[in-house]
Design a protein around this nucleic acid. Sequence first.
DNA 1: TATTAGCACTCGACCTAATTGAGTGCTAAC
DNA 2: GTTAGCACTCAATTAGGTCGAGTGCTAATA
Lengths: 343, 343
Amino acid sequence: MELDERKTKILQAIIKNYLETGEPVGSRTISKYTDLNLSSATIRNEMADLEELGFIIQPHTSAGRIPSDKGYRFYVDAMMLEHEKEVEQLKDVLLEKEEKLDHMLKQAAKLMAVNTNYATMVTAPRSSRNVLKFLQLSRMDASHILAVIVIEGNVIKNTVIDVAESLNDETMLKLNILLNTHLNGLSVEEINLGLITALKQQAGMYGPIIEEVIDAVAETIKEDEDLEIYTSGANNIFKYPELSDNQKASDLINAFEEKQLLTQLIDDTNTDGKNEIKVYIGEESPIQTMKDCSIVTANYEFGDGMRGMIGIIGPKRMDYDKVVGTIKTIKSQLDMMYKKDED
Amino acid sequence: MELDERKTKILQAIIKNYLETGEPVGSRTISKYTDLNLSSATIRNEMADLEELGFIIQPHTSAGRIPSDKGYRFYVDAMMLEHEKEVEQLKDVLLEKEEKLDHMLKQAAKLMAVNTNYATMVTAPRSSRNVLKFLQLSRMDASHILAVIVIEGNVIKNTVIDVAESLNDETMLKLNILLNTHLNGLSVEEINLGLITALKQQAGMYGPIIEEVIDAVAETIKEDEDLEIYTSGANNIFKYPELSDNQKASDLINAFEEKQLLTQLIDDTNTDGKNEIKVYIGEESPIQTMKDCSIVTANYEFGDGMRGMIGIIGPKRMDYDKVVGTIKTIKSQLDMMYKKDED
DNA sequence: TATTAGCACTCGACCTAATTGAGTGCTAAC
DNA sequence: GTTAGCACTCAATTAGGTCGAGTGCTAATA
């Protein structure tokens, strides 16, 4: 049996209706709503076929049909090809105000949540190459030195180092030159034990300070790895009864609070370099506790090999059209952000 | 009518039982559970009195009694006097590992959540005096200057400033000296427009840079104001049916995600300088959406006039004893943290 | 051959009434 | 002052009944 044009139309009608109502849809509804001019009986026959093909499911004997994961997948694939929809009202909202990066990302997450009524997430851009760009020690007061570390992509990190006795200007200058000449432009992998030992030797009695600085550098990189994730609209899940029973809601909220789980999504999105919009439907989700959800994600580019991820999480019957449009818009705004910075 | 000893015992028995079960408790239960050796009829008489006094409530005619807010209040006050309980297993968990402040606070929130099964929050310590401690400009690359700003309490902030043309070492030194001699040790309030104008004049053609630096200082202070809040265990609310109906759960989750609302709690806790443990029961809560909850908070001291807040939020029938113990323990650990840093 | 009308059937949703049982207040006896 | 006993209340549960949306199947129709 094949999926001919009429079956396709019926399938799409079923899904579209289900997306709106969240209720199983019956043959009579389709017969009346569509312009196919077919009786409910004919629709019933076709629906039986569609069920056999695995696109729709009957939750119980005397109920209408709801889309299966396979049905959603079909619908989404068709939509992605067809539409290049943009959500107009979001355009340039982000670009309008110049703000700090973290505020902006938080804002992006919120915008998406308000616009779609689903839960959203945005990760801070993360560099794939970890190259040390700038490093400086300053004397803060008699017993504290401030180390400022900048890595590629302008991730900045500060560490305060305790010292037993005050260092004079000349020593500070010497240490700064020593560190910068040897470390600048190196990636983390290149800063190995041999190099560290050599540096410590040259620093003489100030070896321990060098060690602390290097530790701080290492930690900067590490910190960059367990990255910041901004979420918004987690409470939107309560708008969808199919997600708001106690167990499911608890699991979802937990995922959003812990954020640890969400990183799986990032890895998954990242490995695929194609830089497109990805849609996970139900069982396709890489996150166990989201088997009842659909997830739409995309990467955004921040130049310098930096990239972050945005994502929307909602019920399987989400408004894919709108969600994909929203994601696209926000993605392009974030992409532009960097280019604007370049000027 | 007075609250004699027997009434007190009965009231406490009712509350204790209700805390465990979450169900209205009847006269027969009290008659059997306590060692008062009174019949259910007698208990009934006393319960009628207790209801008249406002300590307990009958949710409907033929049900047992549940504690009113006043009843909880009585119970909590009595407990606070009596007990100086410590939660042993938590001792020194935080102190054991030396970690970065934000990790540690996140950990503290998590510890409390796991230990109590309620939702918890921890705010980063915040300075009440905003004094500029250290300020330094460095040339990062040809077109970017890095400004490092440290305020009292070692809150550090970086800003990258774009410049049209590269500045030479001498100019950088001059700007640094200019800024430090005039601004160090000043509070934000003292950095007024007159001072800024004078500085800009002295900086000559580099006035715009001075302006950007001052802007960054202002923002550091501001950012310090919309402070970091770490939460954990928000999904614990699903363990308590009285909080997990859709509307309430949604509101609570929202409060925990937005965090904006939680700041009310901080202000309230802070104004009272007594630095004790505070318990808000039901209607006493400063947060509208938490009228069905109880909230226990405490401040912790981080020296230098820095203080943060920890809090636990749960149902009115929370295990106050345990919660207060947990809060006390975590508070003392955080208090110690700073003292340990001092060494 | 494809489509449609008709019909018997299924089954969750909803309504109602009856039953249950925990708990109460009151009264009279101890 | 305490207690036993009893009538009463009322939410929660159960059981039975109806309703209606939806189905599959069959026979008639275009």
